[in-house]
Design a binder for these strands. Structure first.
Lengths: 357, 357
DNA sequence: AGACTTTCTGGGAACGCTCCCAAACCTCGG
DNA sequence: CCGAGGTTTGGGAGCGTTCCCAGAAAGTCT
């Protein structure tokens, strides 16, 4: 009824109800004690005036803005948009709002975003950090005791910041083993990880895998699975590609044309999967007849093509939701266990996997 | 150097610089006048203390939070995630942050989100509204003179709220005409629009197309194009589907099996395109030999399959960016022309369109 | 009925900032 | 060397809340 234009404050409500500001505040906040009469008067006044509390003022005194920040490389990327969705869902159900920022994997943008968001006094951050040696902005956050949860990746310098990510190693093992169990012995892998410099066989036993880039972890899982089954890791079957569609396409085309002997191909990332698939289609080799194929991420198109592609599905929504949940626990000072969380991938066998011929 | 933990305020800076709060505020804000000496002292003190302004307090007195809200059905949907990206890009470059909310096309969730965000005192809203007869929450916003820009869709009750959307009618015309120019005369269309109730031929000449649902507008464009070229609109070629993958798949399967005579198929939405494509693949009919095919939205997978699919590309990023730009203009009181903006679609001919045989 | 609890109420400070305004300080020309 | 006119400065109110605390009102028990 009352389309009061400019903001009506708690003072207006108090006046209208004929009580003091404090009393009005008390009943509106449902805290402290107040007589039934006062409560009624205040509630009615509030409704009559169309009172809407000012969250800014509230945040100002309470010190909590009921807002969390999501700092991601790119919300238009399906992985991050799904994670963001999970994040907002979890945040929302806890009464929090989320502020997003894209970094495009640019350290400066990341730093600037974090600063800006800090000024907005967000209660915490979920960050899928840009890879860099010295993530100062993030360290500063931790230093200032602002809750932070890392999503998907972490670098060595941030060893003690909790991480929520896919169990990259396990995921890769899962896919590789499923292929091995089908009888495959020569399994090729498409990876972004720089194979030469890190040397696949060069992962020391006790290494903190959490600090490796996801791509390296996935490569590691592949190696583990092979090793576990006594299969050799053939360097020629480790296909390196840049993190683009085209690069993967080219690399896989080369692999196919090289006449290498392999009976299965596993892609360690969604982007690489797309490129690899395109190369396969172009080459006109029938799959799974020629070789089996496992893609990464349950992208919509993988079920559209024929045969539908077998994939390793990443629980993207859950990753975001879990990150948010963890962050919220930290915010509530429930000195939550700062343990990392690694969610398992789910293998979805479809039409592109079969025993070798 | 100084990792001062809890917030250092402008008072701390003033004290450290040996000046008054007002002076410090003046130089920090770069407003008013101050002697070079004071400026130097204040800046140094600020740096030494690691001063970070409190945006909340600032917003509180200035009345502007430098934040805009994006209320979208689902950020995990590629269309909206791309639009959100455009939105944040535009906002960011104007010094604004964006708060996101998902509605899942639920009116109650939308209402609640808008209320919550209003309490947070966002400076404006970009909303892709849930379809409903009485979008009260949005009307209230407009009433309270909070800037709002609608994205992608609008309903009759919001006639005077500026809209940024695709030129749905023109897009559809473009696709249909391109098919006609190739020589096609019997063009089928897959649409979510309820054909019977609105009666394709039942769009009155002077109708406010902006208030129609996008699907209806796209259907209208199809009709227009046919009419313009003297082609009849055959009811049997208007294939209705629910807004799901499977529904479209079923509908197109039925169309193909029906033996209907048609030489081209146009899908009016990304989801429908996926379902239709799946039906085509399943049926094993070769395209464009059997019939030409135009999909909606330049989804990644449309270039992955073979032949690559010809599509009508929607400038999703630009839609979001334009919406944000418009909103910001409105926020700055540059009583911007409240005109709607309709961006054109771009036809990308690929391998699935050819002259009929 | 008086003393003592318990419940309820309103005043006022505080959160960190901006902005108004009057006081203090300069700089000059006469 | 004084005052006009300009620049620089600091005090203080105010933004809309919350919260502490002292005092008023109401209830309880000998």
């Amino acid at each position: 009824m009352a389309p009061r234009s400019q903001s009506v404050t708690i003072n207006d409500v108090a006046r209208e109800a004929g009580v003091s500001k404090s009393s009005a505040a008390r009943v509106l906040a449902g805290r402290g004690s107040s007589s039934p009469k006062t409560q009624k008067a205040v509630h009615e006044a509030a409704k009559r005036l169309g009172y809407r509390p000012n969250a800014l003022a509230k945040a100002m005194v309470s010190g909590s803005s009921k807002t969390i920040a999501a700092v991601l490389p790119d919300v238009a990327n399906p992985f991050f948009s799904a994670a963001l969705r999970g994040l907002t869902d979890a945040a929302r159900s806890a009464g929090f709002e989320v502020l997003v920022a894209n970094t495009d994997n640019d350290p400066d943008v990341e730093t600037r975003s974090i600063e800006l968001l800090t000024e907005k006094r967000v209660d915490g951050f979920v960050i899928a950090p840009v890879f860099q040696d010295e993530p100062d902005a993030i360290s500063r956050l931790v230093n200032d005791e602002i809750p932070v949860v890392l999503l998907d990746r972490r670098m060595p310098a941030l060893a003690d910041v909790p991480l929520v990510s896919l169990d990259h190693v396990g995921a890769s093992e899962l896919a590789t083993e499923s292929l091995i169990e089908l009888g495959h012995k020569r399994i090729a892998i498409v990876t972004e990880a720089v194979y030469d410099s890190q040397g696949v066989s060069g992962f020391p036993p006790g290494i903190d895998t959490g600090a490796l880039r996801p791509s390296a972890q996935r490569l590691l899982g592949y190696r583990n699975a092979l090793g576990k089954h006594g299969l050799p890791l053939e360097h020629d079957l480790v296909v390196h590609a840049e993190y683009t569609w085209r690069s993967a396409q080219k690399a896989v085309r080369r692999l196919i044309e090289s006449g290498q002997d392999f009976s299965a191909l596993f892609c360690t990332d969604a982007v690489l999967t797309a490129g690899a698939y395109k190369a396969i289609v172009e080459a006109g080799v029938p799959i799974p007849e020629t070789f089996s194929f496992i893609g990464f991420d349950d992208q919509e198109w993988t079920t559209l093509v024929s045969p539908a592609i077998s994939v390793l599905d990443q629980p993207r929504h859950a990753l975001g939701a879990t990150a948010a949940t963890r962050l919220l626990a930290q915010i509530r000072h429930i000195t939550a266990n700062q343990q990392d969380v690694r969610l398992p991938a789910n293998l979805i066998p479809r039409g592109t996997t079969a025993p070798p011929r």
